[in-house]
Write a protein that binds this DNA or RNA. Structure first.
Lengths: 272, 272
DNA sequence: CTCAATTTGTTCGTATGTATG
DNA sequence: ACATACATACGAACAAATTGA
């Protein structure tokens, strides 16, 4: 009588055995269960998850088919291998690292819409530009999609270098414009879930968790020139924050790590 | 035969009507459908999603119960309101804001374990202290649990003020110790999913997304004195990152806050 | 070698949920 | 509203493989 589970289970409706399977998969991926190790018996799992035996079996069956578990009648169930850590994409937490990380990025642009409704801005996001262009693209790494970007780009920025905006990431393109001064740039991160469009583009199950990132860049006149809604698949991203960061950050930059320095020095950042 | 949706359905096994409902919910939340507006008729939705009429009805029923849609026989279906943002907990991204945000926090300590195995550290996390104490607690806000903390605290730090560590958040307590100098402090964020323990403690569905935060603080001798695994329920947290942040951050720090500042100035951070 | 304990594998029956037409 | 088909979940009983006393 899976009381707790059934209650929550009510309206979100991912089948129980799928839920159980993903928890076990997570334990394997995180190393909590190591390869070769014998995991708990069906009876124990049954008790732990408070589900029926058949349900645990279904979950084990799923992982067995994925090659993560090895079930042997009479002996037990064993972990067969670790899947590698999928969290390989380090999200940038500063303008320089962001621009750098995007420089070599080759987005696949799906659509460009010239006459689009303006983005919805919130308090502190700056003022609307008179006109926007909407660019939608999918980012790939190793031929695997990992994020979808819905971008509102101020029309007059787009027109400055329309050709490059069509084939390269927007932020480095903006960063390279000497005549554009930045006012503010920030991003807000929230965990969401994949709607059908996103699920389809990124080849992930509908409703699976995503990292939603709203990134806004304003110019020195407080006009929101870049408003992006970026959706990452959550299983490939990681975010590292240095709490005593300012200094370390500066030091890293001073070290000249990779390429970040080259674009950084020249743009005078306005106050506000 | 709902071609597109059924395909996703095969991957994720979310019931069709739930999928349809979440698409419509998303349209409401994103403002694509505004309050008061009459949405498409059942027939139109039926055609759009390529599902049976009953399925659309079920989806509408879900949103109706959530109070997002208002169905009137003979007139049509209307959007009743936008949902408010549940993401009220802003995660701290600097030592000072972190300490401040925790000062008034009253954790409910569940367990204290004196002889515990040491934490598993990774490259760059510092050296193990000779002994640790393990503290497990749940954080509440408005009588609702929002995070679970599993903390390894260096034994000699714990012994300095055991009483306070039992009733107050650990970081402010450490911050208040004049004789402890900090070496490094960082956190790594990743999206995970709730296992049975977490689901139970936070009253969330098994497998629902979480924000996993590993927070590590080392002292000036590079000993990991604070190693915390914090699990937040993902639907209440938000993370804001100022990309041009150094300045704003410095300003905040300059505003006062004796505690953290004293810890900033010293120590040679050689870093690899 | 047999026996018992353990552990997975299989099969019923039942109830409910999902989706179509 | 109804009939149909299939998926999900439970509990319980029994079968088969493995291990060790």
């Amino acid at each position: 009588m899976a009381s707790k589970l059934l209650k929550s289970y009510d309206r979100s409706r991912v089948p129980l055995y799928i839920q159980v399977a993903s928890i076990m998969r997570h334990r394997i991926q995180s190393g909590q269960w190591s390869p070769g190790q014998k995991i708990s018996t069906l009876e124990e799992l049954e008790r732990e998850f408070e589900v029926a035996r058949v349900t645990v079996r279904q979950a084990v069956e799923v992982l067995n088919e994925e090659g993560l578990l090895d079930v042997r009648q009479g002996r037990g169930t064993f972990v067969s291998k670790h899947t590698q850590d999928r969290h390989w994409l380090q999200l940038a937490t500063s303008w320089s690292s962001l621009v750098t990380s995007l420089e070599d990025n080759v987005p696949e642009t799906i659509t460009v819409e010239k006459n689009c409704p303006p983005p919805q801005l919130e308090e502190g996001d700056g003022q609307l530009a008179p006109e926007y262009v909407r660019l939608c693209s999918v980012q790939y790494r190793n031929a695997e999609p990992y994020s979808v970007v819905h971008l509102h780009l101020a029309r007059y920025i787009f027109d400055k270098n329309a050709k490059r905006f069509m084939v390269a990431a927007a932020l480095p393109t903006i960063d390279a414009m000497d005549d554009i001064l930045l006012g503010e740039a920030h991003e807000t991160l929230v965990v969401g879930s994949a709607d059908p469009e996103i699920a389809d583009l990124m080849k992930i199950p509908l409703g699976s968790p995503t990292m939603q990132c709203r990134c806004i860049v304003t110019d020195d006149k407080d006009i929101a020139i870049y408003v992006a809604d970026i959706i990452y698949r959550s299983d490939c991203i990681k975010l590292r924050i240095d709490l005593l960061g300012a200094k370390a950050d500066r030091k890293k930059r001073a070290d000249g790590e990779a390429g970040p320095v080259k674009l950084m020095g020249r743009k005078s950042r306005t106050a506000r």
